[in-house]
């Protein structure tokens, strides 16, 4: 007579991969972005308003290291969060591994280029001296 052996224990929890980490960071960055973006929007769009914003306003703001750090954080977190969101949405429309890999690369390069353009501006500041008087 043979005795039935107990089935081996199966670990159903998969190892965290890139997508798991990205999923978590969408949530971590989301928590940070609510105060960061809402304060930015409240000041620039509601309180100050686009009619009171010109290059001198930007120059004045970025002469302050505190606002420079704030805007760098804003740029880094909003745009990465947004571009990763775009990647996730695009995966709904493209199912093949090849298409998804290509899309990820395109989105990554676009993210890198636009982030560089923005970061250089925040660090370099408004170059009002280049304007004709």
């Amino acid at each position: 007579m043979t005795t039935a052996t107990a089935p081996a224990r199966v670990n159903l929890k998969p190892k965290p991969n890139y997508e798991t980490t990205a999923w978590k960071w969408m949530r971590y960055s989301g928590v940070l972005l609510v105060p960061l973006v809402w304060i930015h929007v409240a000041i620039q769009d509601v309180i100050v308003g686009v009619h009171n914003i010109d290059i001198n306003y930007v120059a004045l703001r970025w002469a302050n290291i505190g606002w420079q750090v704030y805007d760098i954080l804003l740029l880094a977190f909003t745009f990465a969060h947004g571009m990763n969101g775009l990647r996730q949405v695009s995966f709904d429309f493209f199912q093949s591994d090849k298409a998804r890999r290509n899309l990820s690369w395109i989105i990554f390069v676009a993210w890198l280029v636009i982030s560089f353009i923005g970061a250089m501006a925040i660090i370099g500041g408004a170059r009002t001296h280049l304007l004709e008087p």
Binding site: M120, G125, R127
Partner: peptide, 13 residues
């Protein structure tokens, strides 16, 4: 918005 604001450094005019 990132690109238009960045003009203050790249192309202020």
């Amino acid at each position: 918005h990132i690109v238009d604001t960045a003009t203050v450094y790249w192309m202020p005019e």
